[in-house]
Structure formats: C-alpha cells, structure tokens
Design a protein around this nucleic acid. Structure first.
Lengths: 366, 366
DNA sequence: TCCTGATTGGACAACGTTGTCAGATGTGGA
DNA sequence: TCCACATCTGACAACGTTGTCCAATCAGGA
C-alpha cells in the first residue's frame, strides 16, 4: 500500500487499517474520513528522531540541538503536521482551551468580548469555548468547575455580572483553575483582572456636556449588579459637583443596560416638566433608546436634547444621529484577559478609553 | 489514602498519584487542580460491571440488560460522572463537536446563528467550535478540512457567502465530512441545507407596501455574493409586476448588507427628484441606514418615507421608529442545521417567515 | 587515559475512553 | 441431558500525545 504523501503508520503496535476501513465503508451509512492525517510518528520518522524529541520541539522545551530542531521543524512543515488537540490534552496538563462564561444581556458587548478573545486565542494557538449560563443559577459553581476540570481548561474568563459571585470565585479558587475577571466590582485584589477606569470615563462624559453649556443633566443608571454601573454613577456625580452643577434626584433614574429598560427610563425623564437638556446613559443600548424616546416625543437630537452613551458598541454608529459615546476597549480587554491566562506578553490590567464625539451632542438649547 | 467521595483510581496499570502530586505542587508555579473527577473506572466499580459496559450505557448501545442499565445509571448519577470529551473523541469516531465557519459582515445575523446553534448543541450534549475566516482565502478548503479532521468534527455548518465556494464544497465532500449549508445559492441538491423562501418573503414585503398605497417603490439590493440577495430582488420585482407597479431601474440600487453601504445607497435614492415613497432594504442593517439617511435629509419615517427591512435582527427594535421587517427564523435555522448534522429529530429544511408590521411603514404621502 | 557532569535522545508508560472479539450465561429444542 | 443459539459481559488493545526516567554522547579536567 502506497502512501503518496509519505504518511504511513508504524508507531509501535499500530495495526493495519486498510481492510478495516473498507469494511467500515461498506457497512456504515456515514463513512469515516479517508483522509490520513500525519501523526507525531510520521514526523519523527521523517526527521529521523524519536517521537519524544518531536514533542520537545513542539512544546518549545529546552535542550534540543540546533540542528535537530531544524530537521524536526522541516519535517513538520513538509507534512503539514499539527498535533491532535484531544490527544494532547488527554496526555498533558494543558488543553489549549480557554473557557468564557457569560450571562450578559447586551449582545453587542458580548460580541466584542468574544471577538477579541477568539482573535487572540487564534494568534496564540488556543481555542475558545463559549459557555452561556444563568447568572442566578445556584448550581453555577459546580457547573463551571465541572466543565473546567473535565475539559482541562487552561483558564477561565468571567464577565459581569458573573465576576462578582462569591460562591463561584470560591469554587474556582478551590479547584485551582486560573481565572481572569473582566471589570469586577468586588475583591479587586483577589484574582487577576482587566478593567478600565469607569469613573474617570463618566467624568469625561459629564465634562463634555458641561463644556457644551448644559446645566440640567440627567443620567440613566446601569444594572445594579454590575460594578461598572456604580462607578459610572459616581464619576458622573463627582464631575457635576466639580463643575458646580446640581443633579436633581429625579434626574438620576434606574436602568438595566437593556434597550427596553433604557426606553422606559428615558420616557420618565422626558415627561418631567423640568426635563434635562442632556442625558448620560449607562451604555449605548440605553443611549439609543433615549434617542428613540426623544424621537417619539417629537424632540430632535441634538437640537432639543443631547445624549451621551457608553461602550461605543456597533449600535452607536447604526442609528441617527450617531452617538457621542465613551469608547470602551472591549475587544482589547478580552484579548488582555487571554494574555493574562496564557501568561504571555505584558499583563495589562487597566486599559484606556476615549470620548468619541459624534452628532448626538450639541450646544444647550436656548 | 482515603477518598471521601468514593472516587479512587484502580484501573488496570494505574500508578499511585499522591507522591507525584505533592512533588508537582512543590515544584510548579501553577499547581494542577487537586479536584479528582470521577472516571469510567469509578463508575464501573460502583456499579459492579466492567468499563466497557458503562461505555455501552453511555452510548446507548443495544443489548444491555434492563437491570444492569439501571445500576450503571444510578452510579453515574451518584458520582456526577461525565465522560472526558478528549478521551472520548480520541478513542472513538465522534467528537461531539460541530464546527461553524463564517465570514459574515452582519454581526447581528451571526449572533443569532451562533446563539441558535449553541443552544441546540447544549441540549444535545454537543459543543460548538466557532471559526471566523476569510471568505476569499484561497487556502480555505485545506484549512477547513484540516480543522475538521484534526478535531474529528462530527460536522460542519457553513453560512453565506462561504456556502457557495465550489472548492470548499469539493474538499469537504472528498474528506467525507458531514456538511449542512445555511441558505445556499448553488447546487441546492448537492448537500443537506436549511433555507427559507426568500422570494416569497420579498413578495410579501412588496405586497405590504402596495397595500398601503405606495406606487413608486425602491429597493436596496444585498451583497451579490449572497444567494439570498438575488432571490429577494426577484421576488420584489415579481410582486411589483403582479400589482402593476413599475419599478424604475434607478430605483434598484446595489448594496452590500452593511450599514455603511446601505447609507450610501439610501442617499442616492433620496437625492433623486422622483424619489420612491417606500424603500425595501435587503436586510435590517441597510433598512436602519435608510432611516438614518431619511433623518439626515429631513424626511420623517413613516410620514414622508416607508421603510421595510429583512431579518428582524435586534437592530430592528433598537431604532426609532422600530422597523417593519421580515422576520427570518435565523436561530431556528441554525438549530435545524445542528439537528441535521446530529441526525436527530425531523430534518426540517425550509422554515417559515413572518412580516412584522411595526412603525417604519405607513400610508403613502399625498 | 579515565572520570565527571552537562547535554541530548529515546523507551515506555500513562491519560480516559471506545472498538474488537472472545467468553459467560441463559433458553429452548432434540 | 446436551447442544445450538441468542444475549449479555468483560479483557485488552487501540487512539496520539506528553511525562518520567534512563542511556548515550561529548567536552574538559585530573
């Protein structure tokens, strides 16, 4: 039997397959792929070394002679060999798999998180397992540790509001599974994490509105379970105080980071007789809802009302007028989380932000 | 050594681990999880059967005595045992893993596809590997087959425009990897696929506008590489002809399914002296862009212009006014694709749609 | 020349499951 | 009673890698 690609099988104790394959093919409705993928044995044979030496090269272990290294690398390239991930994680301690758990209502935010994480994983030869779950599931700790240990995950990434569940943190710590939290509220020193300065960003938003001459500011708050919501509120209040602006209690209305919640909140604000001339929404979904509510009330943005969002998610540029918003480096944060887990590159922990001035803000109406 | 959970290790030839673990722990910076997960040996011992019998139960093989079955099931439940997926796919022919390849600019559409697929996978005990890629990468066939064979993927799901690349289809077929295509344009009989009746849906949209009294209709076409774009155009033209409406050539403008492309197209339409009173956009992103362009031109939707979208993606309800649009069962289509691959349940191939009448359409201006 | 220690390479046993195939058990008929 | 046959069960070898541990090689010093 000839293997045109030079790929054969003669690892120790390997049986002859051809007959079995033919039988299988005849008997089965779903034939197995006849494509023969190169294994570590093929590479070893071609390079004239043992499989263990190939393994050493693959895993960048020290103490492989320069010349051997080159020969193995050439063999790998020739055969287009890539190690079988299942065998790898079964035998070794690593799975090259990172778990991302989430229960976040904002699909835009999560799309960015996933996108950033997946891209970085691809660059580093890892893969991402995305696991939606229920934030209030009492069984969550057991479930997460179960998936992590069973898949031998190399690490876990948690997003709000999961990041602040004590029982989850305890269980993950007890199982010694590496963990990185994105934008945690509690116990910032307890684990590795990635965040941005939500408070300073909210201050920046408030300053922008004050600079435009607005005196009556309103804010739609985020979901109380998210640490960032509180920080943004705090920064906004702080900046208002610094600029000598009074923020009426009825101008700070609760929201939940969803479009629907934001719409209801905006309607409350816009129905007030002394309604604000500018509204800072806790995220872009709620800012978009504010613009929608303004349209419904016959108010033109930004002529009659200025709106500032937070996140710079795709929706910010997919409505009219495009939103002035805080650009949160969501994808970069997810990528940094992956880096932290892999232990590769600089462990960036706090990332920067920008105010994107677009067309949803303008001078105060006179 | 006592195992409080009743989980020990005495498969044949299993070595004692405790010493090794201690050494490891002392030597390593990253300690391995000390959590001991139950293996098939533990279940076998507890049920008083061989590992093979446990395996039989797990894989629903026939010819296991009723009583044995019950005993094994009880042991599995007691130990909260779940098979190690890596070992499973290394030893067996299945991986319980499905690959989703995509290169689609609409993040909303892809979010629905992924969501629908992931949910169904979870229900069936499968996992989803999401692989972004480049639609014009000449290396794509090799890459896809490589991932599929290496991971022993149980199947592949392709989305537009990947579904219509002949070289990819050929390579996947040659490798005998099961494939399901979502909304393919070419070779509908060649492989399993899931689709909806784009043509009929576009007809419905046109009928809706005609019913409202509109006579001058415009359309923003989809990306020419997507089969659905052509079908929607065809259906729209057909319905217009049936209703005796003339569609001017300059009222059919090219688009690409993106917001930016839609915005440019809408501006062209709205700048015409004989501009249409109603516009059917090839998808919701472009419909949202049309609303945005109308706002920019000082036109009120739906008073001065009616807009119909396609997809009913999240953006449809996150702008003002909320879009009248064709509700495409995107999540259901992805779920059906998973079902087709698993070979489980009814192999639904063509799914229904709805016209969601919201507030972006109204009677023709007089 | 021989010994020592630093390098490098290789044999072999895990890892946790499924596939193969033979053995054990039970049942009905001659 | 014994045999044939259908059911059920288990021993053992894959699967493709990494970890452990020992052997071979080589340079430099006694």
């Amino acid at each position: 039997m000839v293997h045109p690609t030079g790929i054969g099988r003669d690892g120790p104790g390997r049986r002859e397959h051809s007959l079995t394959d033919i039988q299988r093919h005849a008997a089965n409705d779903r034939a197995p792929p006849p494509v023969r993928v190169a294994t570590i044995f093929d590479v070893a044979r071609r390079a004239g070394v043992s499989t263990k030496t190939v393994s050493r090269v693959l895993n960048n272990e020290a103490r492989v002679a320069e010349e051997t290294l080159a020969r193995v690398r050439a063999a790998v390239a020739d055969l287009d060999y890539r190690p079988n991930p299942n065998a790898r994680s079964l035998a070794g301690r690593r799975s090259y798999l990172i778990g991302l758990f989430y229960d976040n209502p904002s699909s835009n935010y999560m799309a960015d998180i996933k996108g950033g994480a997946i891209r970085r994983c691809q660059e580093k030869g890892y893969h991402l397992l995305t696991e939606p779950c229920e934030a209030d599931d009492p069984n969550l700790p057991r479930l997460m540790v179960g998936v992590a240990t069973r898949f031998r995950l190399d690490g876990l990434i948690l997003t709000p509001p999961l990041v602040d569940r004590q029982d989850v943190l305890d269980a993950v710590a007890a199982a010694h599974v590496p963990l990185v939290r994105i934008a945690p509220r509690t116990d910032p020193d307890r684990t590795a994490h990635v965040r941005m300065d939500d408070q300073a960003a909210a201050r920046l938003a408030a300053d922008h509105l004050a600079d435009l001459g607005h005196r009556r500011l309103g804010m739609i708050l985020g979901h109380p379970d998210h640490g960032a919501a509180e920080l943004r509120r705090h920064g906004f209040l702080q900046a208002a105080a610094d600029r000598g602006l009074t923020l009426l209690p009825q101008h700070m209305v609760p929201g939940d980071f969803s479009f629907a919640g934001g719409f209801a909140a905006a309607e409350r604000l816009l129905s007030l007789s002394d309604r604000p001339t500018a509204i800072f929404a806790g995220n872009d979904d709620m800012a978009a809802a504010t613009v929608a509510a303004a349209n419904k009330h016959g108010l033109q943005v930004p002529r009659d009302l200025s709106v500032v969002g937070f996140d710079d998610s795709p929706i910010a540029q997919v409505i009219w007028p495009p939103l002035t918003t805080i650009r949160q480096p969501t994808m970069a944060m997810a990528a940094a989380a992956v880096d932290l887990l892999i232990g590769d590159g600089e462990p960036v922990r706090q990332l920067g932000f920008d105010l994107m001035v677009r067309q949803s803000t303008g001078p105060v109406p006179r």
